[in-house]
């Protein structure tokens, strides 16, 4: 079964009286346990595609399936449930909750899921250690660097072992060593838990980790390359 399937999806934005085709008849299948890199120049439609897959945005036309279930016609509430249960998001702009500490941000999803406080604490401390943030657990986003915030966002996305991780430029603010550590973590999760990854990036080194590389331009898929795992 496919983890993600997009059938001929289109999304058009109106900017003034100019139509921008952010997604232009895009169709892709991503297998379970896949590790896909989306690469496109800025404005190429990466974020729009990830949002469509995650049910954050409904495409104007076409169909989207996640884990075999059609999602482009679900209600907002059902979409929220789907994200909560199955999808980990790393947003391009981190989007941490400013009033919560790093650990509370990481625990948030588990809290909504109803995980016990003890289990939450254990898991969040472990994951923060893995992304190299031990000692910063009680800082708020405003007290952390961009790269540190980005790692909190990554920790938040993967902490509850979702089936699908959608990561939008997860390494944009990281130095090469931290970003390769992060990609190692992704790869490990991909292999041990069969978590499906869709990672949007400009970063050539990140692309090298992917099993499959999809290149987009102006809302269309222009290239789809199977790579060997790094």
């Amino acid at each position: 079964m496919n983890a993600v399937q997009c059938v001929d999806i289109c999304k058009t934005y109106l900017q003034g009286d100019q139509e921008i085709k952010a997604l232009d008849h895009v169709s892709i299948d991503i297998a379970e346990g896949g590790f896909v890199c989306l690469s496109a120049p800025s404005g190429g439609g990466k974020t729009t595609l990830l949002n469509a897959i995650g049910g954050l945005d409904i495409p104007d036309s076409g169909e989207v399936y996640v884990g075999g279930e059609r999602i482009d016609n679900l209600s907002k509430g059902d979409l929220a449930d789907l994200r909560l249960a199955k999808i980990g998001f790393v947003f391009q702009a981190y989007n941490l909750i400013p009033v919560l500490t790093a650990r509370e941000n990481v625990e948030f999803v588990m809290q909504v899921q109803g995980v016990s406080a003890n289990a939450r604490r254990q898991k969040s401390m472990a994951i923060l250690q893995e992304v190299g943030l031990e000692g910063l657990e009680d800082r708020r986003p405003a007290e952390m660097s961009g790269g540190q915030q980005q790692r909190v966002a990554v920790a938040r996305a993967i902490v509850s072992n979702p089936e699908l991780v959608l990561a939008d430029e997860p390494t944009a603010n990281l130095d090469s060593r931290t970003s390769s550590e992060l990609m190692d973590l992704f790869t490990e999760l991909n292999e041990t838990h069969a978590t499906t990854f869709v990672v949007a990036t400009h970063d050539k080194r990140v692309m090298a980790y992917a099993k499959r590389l999809i290149k987009m331009l102006d809302g269309r898929i222009v290239d789809d390359i199977q790579q060997k795992a790094a």
């Binding site: 995650g54 954050l56 907002k76 994200r83 909560l84 998001f89 947003f91 989007n95 909750i97």
Partner: peptide
């Protein structure tokens, strides 16, 4: 953010 993470409206 909270809704994007999966809290029902």
């Amino acid at each position: 953010i909270i809704m994007a993470l999966g809290l029902r409206p």
